[in-house]
């Protein structure tokens, strides 16, 4: 019987080794360890074994059973790993093939940039004011201290609906409306469409976008204006950005300034974007003129304020290196999908 067991173990071993897959292994388990399997059959022969030999023989049979079980288990794991490996190998793909097209929309670049500007100012405590695109001559010019014979008021500069109603040429009328409706402190930015009687070409558009800012309270100073715009420029163009305030003239502010930022393409070394100067003009600003405050019902002896304004289209064109303003309003979706 012992010899029989040894024979059996030997056969089982070679059978298991040649089993090609999990199914074959399972067949082997049934063949040797199943209810009618060979090991079971040997156990059935125990009744012919002398009673004193039975414990030893029983142990021997059990050892063989365990050995086969362990062998089966080991081979099974090996086979499974192998089978998974083969499956994965067969399913290999070319990962450089194109992706499946997911549909997603894109914001217009002007609004992408506007969102960025809004975020910066909201972070600095500003609210966003809005106003009508069609506004009065009073809000657009008179209240802003614009001289009555200023050329910007002419039909060749401004679109008129009636003698008193026009398409706003700047977002400043929003400032006027805000000051008339709200007592200081005021801290707003006012973005929006503006219109000027310019023929359409690569650098001119009769419709464009401005963002203006206005802060009015007690003790607002030119230093506050410098600090605010310097921080804004650093947030929008990068921490290394420097600003230069140049005295300038606007009827609605005094003192007035134009602000240059160090060129964000070359860092100020001079390149074709900044025409070699290292500086790019981005906005106009100043302390709100006392005449304007007074006209809006705010006592200039008590309050002061600053205002600034910039052209969004120009900033977008510089930022994305767009050389023709017309493409902004053509709305070719191959253009919009780039942003």
């Amino acid at each position: 019987m012992k010899a029989e067991l040894e024979q059996l173990l030997k056969r089982a071993k070679s059978d298991i080794e040649v089993a090609r897959n999990l199914k074959a292994l399972d067949d082997m388990r049934i063949k040797y360890l199943g209810k009618k399997g060979e090991v079971t059959n040997i156990l059935k022969g125990m009744k012919d074994v002398a009673p004193e030999d039975r414990p030893a023989m029983g142990k021997m049979v059990n050892d063989v059973r365990e050995t086969i079980e362990v062998m089966l288990e080991n081979y099974k794991e090996e086979k499974k790993a192998l089978e998974i490996k083969e499956k994965l190998a067969a399913e290999s793909i070319d990962v450089t093939m194109p992706s499946k097209q997911l549909v997603r929309g894109h914001k217009h670049p002007l609004n992408v940039a506007l969102d960025e500007v809004k975020d910066i100012f909201i972070g600095m405590g500003y609210k966003i004011a809005e106003g009508p695109e069609v506004d009065t001559v009073y809000h657009n010019f008179d209240a802003l201290n614009a001289p009555i014979d200023h050329p910007s008021r002419s039909l060749s500069d401004t679109f008129y609906i009636t003698e008193d109603i026009l398409l706003r040429t700047q977002t400043s009328p929003i400032q006027v409306r805000t000051m008339k409706q709200q007592k200081p402190p005021i801290k707003i930015i006012a973005p929006g469409r503006c219109f000027r009687n310019d023929e359409i070409d690569a650098t001119h558009s009769p419709m464009f976008h401005q963002i203006e800012g206005l802060v009015v309270d007690k003790n607002i100073t030119m230093a506050d204006l410098n600090g605010t715009l310097d921080m804004f420029a650093k947030r929008l163009f990068g921490a290394q950005t420097r600003t230069k305030f140049r005295p300038h003239y606007f009827p609605f502010t005094e003192p007035s300034a134009e602000v240059d930022v160090s060129c964000f393409k070359c860092g100020g070394e001079g390149c074709r974007f900044c025409s070699g100067s290292g500086w790019i003009e981005i906005l106009g600003c100043g302390m709100v003129h006392p005449n304007v405050l007074a006209e809006c019902g705010i006592d200039p002896e008590v309050y002061s304020g600053f205002a600034f304004g910039m052209g969004l289209d120009r900033i977008v064109m510089m930022k994305y290196e767009i050389d023709d303003i017309r493409i902004l309003f053509e709305n070719d979706i191959r253009f919009i999908k780039q942003f």
């Binding site: 809004k118 506050d224 600090g227």
Partner: peptide
Amino acid sequence: VEEVARIYGYDNIGKTLPAFDAWGAK
């Protein structure tokens, strides 16, 4: 005010932020 500021130099005027509390929001 402007004459004094520009000859004194805008770049010599400090950089501060408006001192009042305001919360920004849409």
